[in-house]
């Protein structure tokens, strides 16, 4: 039982660390903002989830009897709460940051070299582009 718990938690943590490494390499090496954002957002969520889950599994070492070991159960529940929290918030903040980058006008890297973002922004913002003066009040 002990060995099984150890192996499972080591497996989860090592997988998570590997994905963290992938996210870091992607953040350094990828060419433009959107691909970097992709690496950071995807790799971050899953790997943090896996590592924290590995720790939750590792805590099972101290859990034998619910009458005496309920603090351990509380810690496991809190670790699972961190998992759920990361799973909900990390994609949301990734979405918000991506949206902010799009607003700011980060250009995606395209094969043809044209400015695809400009046409896209013009299409989304619609025809009425006369609001620039009034809305500039911040």
């Amino acid at each position: 039982m002990t060995i099984a718990i150890n192996i499972l938690s080591i497996l989860l943590i090592v997988t998570g660390l590997f994905l963290f490494l992938g996210a870091s390499v992607g953040l350094v090496r990828l060419p433009d903002f959107y691909t970097r954002m992709h690496a950071a957002g995807m790799g971050d969520t899953l790997s943090a989830l896996l590592v924290v889950l590995g720790f939750a599994v590792y805590q099972l070492h101290g859990f034998h009897d619910i009458r005496h070991d309920w603090p351990v159960l509380l810690v496991i529940l809190k670790l699972l709460a961190i998992c759920v929290f990361i799973m909900v918030t990390s994609p949301a903040s990734t979405h918000a940051l991506m949206d902010a980058g799009y607003e700011e006008g980060c250009e995606p890297l395209t094969k043809e070299g044209g400015n695809a973002l400009k046409e896209d922004l013009a299409r989304t913002r619609g025809e009425d582009t006369h609001d620039s003066e009034e809305d500039s009040l911040s």
Binding site: F85, V88, T89, A92, H95, A96, D99
Partner: peptide
């Protein structure tokens, strides 16, 4: 943003 406001509505009570 709909996505973010729904997430916020989920997360704020917690």
């Amino acid at each position: 943003d709909p996505i973010i406001s729904v997430t916020c509505r989920l997360i704020v009570p917690v």
